[in-house]
Nucleic acid binder design. Structure first.
Lengths: 198, 198
DNA sequence: TTGACTAGAACGAACGTTCGTTTTATACTA
DNA sequence: TAGTATAAAACGAACGTTCGTTCTAGTCAA
């Protein structure tokens, strides 16, 4: 018997999941600091006491949310690594993945990319030092070592390869771009690859 | 006789400037919501009453700060426009400008790029719709029209051209890059231009 | 009966803001 | 020039609100 499914076998979400889900929506819609604990209580349907039984404090909620999203990202990147052999294919798959998440779960992308985590997660590393972003850079570094990419600074190469795509994601999240990023995937990739291809 | 220099002709900063300067440092160092009005009082050396005499409220301070930085940016971009005739030169100058500001006044770049303005400036447009960013895109659009750049979607071209540089700026502000971005300027520009050059 | 969990009223601290007062600069008068 | 009147600016204690958190009472399954 798992920890979150005690009373029944019905697919009723536990407090932890309900709070995390509600917080993701609230944090991305109105920001961490403009989201009060009472807001989370209302949106999650859990009581204050319940929430504080499962989480140390408000920051703990954000922290758990952050961890879960980073973990999801890691799994997806690991899958890309096993599925594709070449650096080129991997980098392309990464951009496609990021675009896909942006279109299907914009809140997830927004929380990962746009939130100024250091403001409310003082302990955490900056997002760009977190494992998913490291992995993305590793793909690039490997590409340079294999001679597929120009022999330039890893960070410059990585920024050039992913920078365009990430910028478009910001524009999409801000509402500047109105149509699916998927439409632009090919063009974006052509530009990205051309910028660093050997 | 100006409004801010009555008592003497000495270059003593007025309340407005002192508050703006202090707030830029505080907002970028600890974030808007973790900066209290008493914090600003201490850092600026102005009293609470004084501050509320010059600004409507705390949000008004952030708003004035935002406006002043956007205006500075506009002036700099206008100068680039008059100084350089070709789109290529203009775009290159933009990246150099952004790198220069990042190195000499990181707080300015941080506030412009990194702050989630919509959290505390509900009225304002997203930063990427503001005039400076529009102007940056205009340079790219002109380049496409003139045939210097590939005939692709403006937004894709713009994102590809500036995306790498902006990504490096984020990395620099986050402390991931330890040396001056100026060292990487040439490589970054080569990648950026290669990504969209006709 | 016990122990894990839920509930929501209550609490103190900290916040942004207001307000009555004092200080300073300027304009006017004689 | 000296004296007075007026307005603008600065001040900071005090206010009401809202926040994150705690606490005590209660529920329910085992």
């Amino acid at each position: 018997m798992t920890k979150t499914r005690k009373k029944t076998d019905l697919p009723i979400l536990g407090v932890h999941e309900r709070v995390i889900n509600a917080s993701l929506l609230l944090f991305t819609k109105q920001g961490y600091f403009k989201t009060s604990v009472p807001d989370i209580v209302k949106a999650s349907g859990c009581s204050t006491g319940s929430i504080y039984h499962h989480f140390k404090d408000k920051e703990g909620i954000a922290s758990a949310l952050y961890e879960s999203l980073v973990m999801r990202m890691n799994l997806a990147l690991d899958e890309i690594e096993t599925q594709f052999p070449s650096s080129k294919q991997r980098c392309q798959a990464v951009i496609k993945l990021l675009f896909h998440i942006t279109e299907t779960e914009p809140e997830v992308m927004e929380f990962i990319l746009y939130a100024k985590h250091k403001e409310f997660l003082p302990g955490n590393n900056p997002i760009c030092s977190s494992r998913p972003f490291q992995k993305m850079r590793e793909f690039v570094t490997a590409g340079i070592a294999e001679g597929d990419l120009q022999p330039i600074d890893d960070l410059v190469a990585s920024a050039s390869l992913y920078g365009g795509a990430l910028r478009l994601i910001f524009l999409r999240l801000d509402g500047v771009i109105e149509h699916s990023l998927m439409d632009k995937l090919d063009d974006v990739w052509k530009c990205a690859w051309r910028s660093v291809a050997a």
